[in-house]
């Protein structure tokens, strides 16, 4: 049995066999009205400086099963996507070597296929073809497998979306092509916005992100996420925290990166960003750096995103249910 067949069987007939059941919490999602954020880590995810793809798929399954409290990965994915849909995977390839890991995208694609999404109905996208290529993806307009292209290949729909202080056009990938979006951001510091995790990743959907870095991106990042199309179509967020960066971002700065070896997942990207921000702050503190607030770049847009005007999620830690799971 080859790897693909093995994985297929696993996902269909009980992938949890290779997950320690003791790690699966029995909490139901939002049973307490809180937003659930799941952090999974695997200390052995890197093998000779490379990501172990098999362990990564297991880690993804662990995160999804934990989040949705299900025994089989397929059941988790079926809560997000439905057969016949066109699903976009928004990656982040702005910083070359520090881009979304292709191995993680491959793992997500694998599960989407098993959930009934046709290969050609999966679109891996970011701002520019060039960015995707520098991130290790091969542009694919119509060949076999998932389509891969940047906003520059399809352009922007002519409607101007306005919310609060932001006014933008949206990529046709999100307005015309996709039914739903899986948002795969990174866990990293941002020299202007404080952090760039999942909320800011969606700047990649608009035509004018350069206009919205004023005032640490507040309220612009929250405003862009509140555009109805983005609010409705972004189904789930996965943060690629295999390697994270606590300073000097978004540019790739190896001296300030560390192997977190994990993923952070959830539906509430405000709660995810709050959680990720705290991880970065902890690391900064441990490494002797000042807090983001002390550096004048506290990511206040996270709080704005949770206010009553935006209502995108929870930024109050008391309203966030964080579940940490370590893969064995």
């Amino acid at each position: 049995m080859d790897r693909r067949k093995f994985l297929k069987k696993s996902v269909l007939f009980g992938g949890t066999l290779w997950l320690p059941r003791i790690l699966l919490p029995s909490d139901r999602i939002s049973s307490s009205g809180k937003s659930r954020v799941v952090i999974v880590q695997d200390a052995k995810i890197f093998h000779n400086r490379h990501v172990d793809s098999d362990r990564l798929l297991n880690l993804l399954d662990l995160s999804m099963q934990t989040y949705f409290d299900v025994d089989v990965p397929l059941r988790a994915w079926r809560k997000i996507v439905h057969p016949g849909e066109v699903i976009g995977i928004k990656v982040n390839c702005l910083s070359g070597h520090g881009s979304t890991h292709k191995e993680l995208v491959d793992a997500v694609v694998e599960r989407l296929l098993q959930a009934g999404i046709r290969a050609n109905d999966i679109i891996i996208w970011d701002r520019l073809n060039k960015d995707l290529e520098e991130g290790g993806f091969r542009i694919n307009y119509k060949g076999k497998g998932p389509r891969v292209f940047g906003n520059d290949a399809v352009g922007f729909a002519p409607k101007l979306y306005v919310f609060g202080q932001a006014g933008s056009l949206l990529t046709r990938t999100i307005t015309n092509l996709c039914d739903g979006i899986i948002n795969i951001g990174l866990l990293r510091d941002h020299s202007i916005a404080g952090v760039s995790i999942s909320l800011k990743n969606l700047f990649g959907a608009i035509h004018n992100p350069n206009k919205y870095h004023l005032n640490v991106g507040d309220p612009y990042i929250a405003d862009v996420n509140a555009f109805p199309v983005i609010r409705q179509k972004v189904r789930f967020s996965i943060v690629d925290a295999l390697e994270a960066q606590y300073h000097g971002g978004p540019a790739y700065m190896p001296q300030w990166r560390w192997k977190f070896g994990g993923l952070i997942v959830g539906r509430d990207r405000v709660a995810i960003d709050y959680t990720g921000w705290q991880i970065i702050e902890s690391k900064r503190k441990a490494m002797g750096f000042r807090s983001l607030k002390e550096e004048g770049r506290e990511p206040t847009y996270i709080f704005t995103a949770s206010d009553s005007e935006h209502a995108l999620g929870q930024s109050n830690p008391k309203m966030i249910e964080t579940i940490k799971v370590t893969a064995s």
Binding site: N120, Y141, K142, D152, V154, G155, F156, P158, R172
Partner: peptide
């Protein structure tokens, strides 16, 4: 399903604002 490469490139090259 049927958008061929030529059509795609034609649209893509003209796309944008």
């Amino acid at each position: 399903e049927g958008m061929d490469r030529r059509t795609f490139l034609k649209l893509a090259s003209a796309a944008g604002l």
